[in-house]
Amino acid sequence: MGIGGSDMYRQQILDHYKNPRNYGEIEDPTFTHIGENPMCGDEIRMDVVLDEDEETIEQVAFQGDGCAISQASASMLSQELAGMAVEDLKAMDRDDITEMLGVDISPMRVKCAVLAEKVAQDGADIFFGEKDIDRTVTEDDD
């Protein structure tokens, strides 16, 4: 089977899509951020709680709508991020997401896969005053 078909839809991804982890809102998050893929209509909102030193992620929740790849990726990332240093979040890239998902993502679907990661990163950057945007919008070359 070629890249791009149901190879992408291994059990783990379908499981996270159907039963998303950490789905919902956090009452008093350190920061909240929203992002979208306009072409696909995928949307993700992430609530993040940092520890007192603002160096480590304590808790993440997400809400969203969209394709299985974008939503499963958000669910898996929400688990991955809990306990992670903010610096490590900032250093994440597309390869880390591919590794986390455990499947090859076809080129056209990469922006679905990385949406949650971009939302978390932009949310952190805005919180630390390193970026000034309202929403994250993923483009083809992200």
């Binding site: 791009g4 149901s6 696909c40 969209g66 790849i69 076809s106 679907r109």
Partner: peptide, 12 residues
């Protein structure tokens, strides 16, 4: 099933 997921699966 989202249309993009459907298209990816049909590709199989």
């Amino acid at each position: 099933v989202h249309a993009h997921d459907l298209s990816s699966i049909l590709n199989d």
